[in-house]
Structures are given as structure tokens and as C-alpha cells.
């Protein structure tokens, strides 16, 4: 390595080796930032996977609250209340007299229909209660204990998440990534109006995603009642199970990132309206885009891991 091989540079050019710098500091930084974000979500999602893999096979069941001691309940039976029917008071009375459950608890069971779960019965009791409820015009079915190490998708007795709703939401987010790509390519060609338009589209789609997520949270936290296998309180809140803790933490942090992305997009959109960007100078649009795609990719992973498997 001898001395003379350093090419003469104009004194104020910052970069050293490569002649035309392909990357800008901003781009390097945004990639590094995304790397740190990836590690952060790796921590959260990794923990989710570890918890899921490490959960004992009796952690969740169709008849008892998460993490209940099930060792001595192997032949316990229950009744799933599919529909209350015309005589709610009668149904409540029948359940109360068959199980000795208090008023509040019975009310929770009724509210959770079509997935209301009555537990604490033996085989005979379950049969009798089913028959009694049938007579009252309610829909009821006897059920035996089923356990799993983790809530299964599409199992309304252990898993409150609505895959259908979220699939739609995922689609919305993917669309927003596409509009973002279009916005960036528009400004690269110098088509400012088109860029603003697609930025607006991205913004709206992102906002919609957030809105749906807020709706989903509302349903889970207080909007609906869930059976005992999901939550002993009837509502799906972070403390009811490890699954709930994980779900709210992972999707919550993702939601925060989307919200931050929406704010960023709004600022970029305003800048675009004011004509700040051009075919030569579109760094901010590009960086916002990179971040937005990242948020999207994380969601796809998260959706797969938390909702689908």
C-alpha cells in the first residue's frame, strides 16, 4: 500500500474511496435504524416463539381459564352455550342451579354466547344441563376437556382473535406499501402531483389500518365477552394469559410504529404538497418509504406468527 494511490479529490468532498458515492448518509442511517428495529422486534417475536414452544401442553383449555391447574380435572365436562334463546332468565337459572355459580359469572357465560362455556360439571351433570337448556329453547352442547399448549387459530373457545378481520387489514397494509412504491417512483420521475396523490393514498390506507386495529383492540378489551378459556374476566386484557401479554405487546408496538409512520407520512405529504421534493431531491420520501415497507414486513411476519400459526 503505497502513498500515491489516493486519488486527488476536491478538498471538500466528504467520501473517500469510491468515486461517486452511491449511498447518502441519510440512507446509511435509515438502514442502520431499521437494523436496530429489526433486532427489537426479534426480541419481542423471539420471546413469543419461545413462550409458545415452551408452554406446557395444558396451558390453555376450552373449559378453564388459562394456566388453571388441570391435573385433577381430566374427566371434567362442560357445556357450550351456542345461543341463549327466548328465555334468558330461565337459562341463567338453569345454569346457576346446575353449577352453583354466582350471578355475575352466569351473566358472563350468557354474554359470551355463542361461545358461552359452563364448566365444573361431570358427565352426568353436563348431559342434564344440556337437556334442560334445550328445553328452554337455548342451543347447548356438552363438551369434554380439550387442552393445548397455546390458543389455536379459529378456535373461538381459546382464541379471541379474528383472522378474517385481520386478513383484510393485512391486505390494506400491503396495498399501502404498493402505493408507497408508486409515490417514490413518481417523484423519481419528477411527477410531483402524482407523488402527492400516492402519498395521500398511503396515508389513508395506513390510517385505515390503524383504525381497524383500534377497533380490534376495543372489541378485545371491552367490546365483547369471551368464554372462560380465553379470559376469566370475560375480556381479553394483557394480564389474562401469556398469550394476551404477548399479543398486546407485539401488536401494540407494531401499532405504535405504524402510528409513527403515519405521522411521518403526513409530514412528507405536506412537504410534497408544498413542492419540497423533486427528481433530484427526494430523500425524505424515500426514507419514509423504506420505513413504511419495514413496518409492513414486520406486520406480515407478525400476522403469520401470532394469528395464523
Amino acid at each position: 500500500m503505497t502513498s500515491a494511490d489516493a486519488p486527488p479529490h476536491p478538498a471538500h468532498r466528504p467520501s473517500a474511496d469510491a468515486a461517486p458515492a452511491p449511498a447518502t448518509p441519510g440512507k446509511v442511517a435509515i438502514w442502520l435504524f431499521l437494523a436496530t428495529e429489526i433486532m427489537f422486534f426479534t426480541g419481542l417475536l423471539g420471546s413469543y416463539i419461545v413462550f409458545r414452544a415452551g408452554s406446557p401442553p395444558t396451558s390453555y383449555s376450552n373449559l378453564y381459564a388459562p394456566a388453571a391447574q388441570l391435573d385433577r380435572l381430566k374427566d371434567a365436562r362442560g357445556v357450550v352455550l351456542g345461543a341463549v334463546g327466548p328465555d334468558a332468565d330461565g337459562v341463567a337459572g338453569a345454569i346457576a342451579s346446575a353449577t352453583g355459580k354466582g350471578e355475575a359469572e352466569v351473566a358472563r357465560i350468557l354474554a359470551a354466547a355463542p361461545h358461552g362455556v359452563v364448566n365444573g360439571l361431570d358427565e352426568k351433570g353436563a348431559g342434564e344441563l344440556t337437556a334442560a337448556l334445550g328445553k328452554l329453547g337455548a342451543k347447548a352442547e356438552a363438551a369434554s376437556l380439550r387442552t393445548s399448549n397455546w390458543p389455536r387459530p379459529y378456535d373461538p373457545l381459546t382464541n379471541p382473535l379474528s383472522i378474517d378481520l385481520t386478513t383484510v387489514n393485512t391486505f390494506i397494509l400491503i396495498c399501502s406499501s404498493a402505493t408507497m412504491v408508486l409515490a417514490v417512483s413518481a417523484i423519481q420521475q419528477g411527477r410531483k402531483g402524482r407523488c402527492s396523490l400516492f402519498l395521500l393514498a398511503t396515508l389513508v390506507l395506513g390510517g385505515t389500518f390503524l383504525g381497524v386495529q383500534v377497533f380490534e383492540y376495543h372489541e378485545l378489551l371491552e367490546g365483547r365477552s369471551y368464554p372462560i378459556g380465553i379470559s376469566p374476566t370475560g375480556h381479553f386484557t394483557p394480564e389474562v394469559s401469556l398469550f394476551a401479554s404477548c399479543f398486546f405487546t407485539v401488536t401494540g408496538f407494531h401499532g405504535l410504529h405504524v402510528a409513527a409512520g403515519v405521522v411521518t407520512l403526513a409530514i412528507v405529504f405536506l412537504g410534497s404538497l408544498l413542492g419540497r421534493f423533486s427528481a433530484q431531491d427526494f430523500g425524505a420520501v424515500e426514507y419514509a418509504g423504506l420505513y413504511w415497507h419495514f413496518v409492513d414486513v414486520v406486520w406480515i411476519l407478525l400476522f403469520t406468527i401470532v394469528y395464523l400459526i
Binding site: 437494523a35 427489537f40 386484557t237 405487546t249
Partner: peptide, 28 residues
């Protein structure tokens, strides 16, 4: 840059355990 975010996630989980009622680190 590559290691610290993992600590951040752990601290956040511990914080949620303490404040939001999650139970990442408390055994049955």
C-alpha cells in the same frame, strides 16, 4: 446497534410486567 435493541425489548417487557399486568417473566 445490533445488541441493544434486544435489551430494550427485555426492559420493555419487564416494564409492562410491572405496570400493565402482563406476565412475561412471572412463573405460574
Amino acid at each position: 446497534a445490533f445488541a441493544l435493541p434486544v435489551l430494550t425489548s427485555a426492559l420493555v417487557m419487564q416494564l409492562l410486567d410491572r405496570t400493565a399486568g402482563t406476565n412475561f417473566f412471572s412463573p405460574v
